[in-house]
């Protein structure tokens, strides 16, 4: 398809520009302004409780390198994103396979699974906080009903708190993975499956050697999107633990928020933000390029 074969190239280029420019110009202008201003802020020592501030060069960045709390938050962010993403992928896949058959209410199930994504995160975070309450919460109540004890200190225990926060992220975003994978399963071509059946493959073999490879692109995209968004998670952590106890759930986002909006160290918060953004952009551009190239090849 070459719709513009006959048009003079110059005119065509202009036309392309005209169509593309509004969004691209606005988006680039916004990025440049935000980044420019952020860099300006990052080179000062602005704290809102003081009126005066001065140019301090790169010393904020140097401070960041020696900031143990910042490094700890990087670790927590990775822990949160990686575990949450993998649990969501596995659970989402399992549920998609479970529902991958004809049954009454198929549409309703998919519809209901949308709900966690649509709920306001601030509200669902609060609800989970109540569910997790060790004394009045519903989770410990049910555990005690089925005889598993009732003294789990979900959000107050350093080892459990991260797990508990992850679980609520899993609750919110597994449906997303499920919906992607379910529609990918719907679209699987029939022939390879038939062929496998003819060859006498077991269900597990069919799944492992036929279905899974066919689903690879959707699994990859689900992985990428969840990784990207889970790093940005803020609302639920803010509401559930505020990064505690003893920093066990303090992600970089949360730490930047505390530096900026609690300690009012505007410059330092900006430095944290810039550093994270650069790091994430690098990693994801890399993964994305890799993925798109494998897709093009495969």
């Amino acid at each position: 398809m070459a719709p513009f074969k006959d048009v003079r190239p110059l005119l065509q280029q202009n036309r392309v520009k005209l169509w593309l420019s509004p969004a691209i110009v606005i988006l680039s202008a916004f990025s440049v302004i935000v980044l420019g201003y952020s860099i300006y802020l990052s080179l000062q020592n602005i704290n809102l409780v003081k009126q005066a501030h001065a140019f301090v060069g790169l010393s904020n960045f140097a401070d960041l390198l020696h900031d143990g709390r910042a490094w700890s938050s990087v670790g927590k962010t990775l822990k949160f994103s990686v575990i949450a993403t993998f649990v969501e992928l596995i659970l989402g896949l399992a549920i998609a396979l479970y529902f991958n058959r004809e049954f009454r209410g198929r549409r309703i199930v998919r519809t209901l699974m949308l709900i966690p994504m649509i709920m306001t995160p601030v509200v669902s975070g609060l609800i989970w906080r109540i569910f997790y309450d060790p004394n009045a919460g519903i989770i410990n109540y049910f555990l005690s009903v089925i005889g598993l004890g009732n003294k789990y200190d979900w959000l107050g225990n350093v080892d459990l708190a991260m797990f508990a926060v992850i679980l609520s992220d899993v609750w919110q975003w597994t449906p997303f993975v499920f919906l992607i994978l379910a529609s990918s399963l719907d679209a699987l071509p029939g022939e390879p499956l038939e062929a496998a059946k003819v060859d006498g493959a077991t269900r597990l073999q069919t799944f492992w050697h036929v279905v899974l490879p066919l689903m690879k692109p959707s699994l990859l995209i689900a992985f990428l999107l969840r990784m990207m968004d889970s790093i940005k998670t803020f609302d639920i952590i803010y509401v559930m633990t505020r990064g505690g106890p003893s920093l066990s759930t303090e992600t970089t986002n949360m730490y930047a928020y505390i530096q900026g909006f609690n300690n009012f160290n505007i410059s330092y918060a900006t430095v944290i933000n810039i550093s994270i953004t650069i790091a994430i952009t690098f990693i994801f551009t890399f993964i994305y390029k890799k993925m798109t190239s494998t897709r093009a090849n495969g």
């Binding site: 409780v49 107050g156 350093v158 505690g244 106890p245 003893s246 920093l247 609690n262 009012f264 160290n265």
Partner: peptide
């Protein structure tokens, strides 16, 4: 003026001790 930051640092310390960290 810097009370918030001092409170935050101390809050982390209390939490660390309380959880046995």
């Amino acid at each position: 003026p810097q009370a918030n930051e001092i409170i935050n640092n101390t809050g982390v310390a209390i939490s660390k001790a309380l959880t046995g960290h």
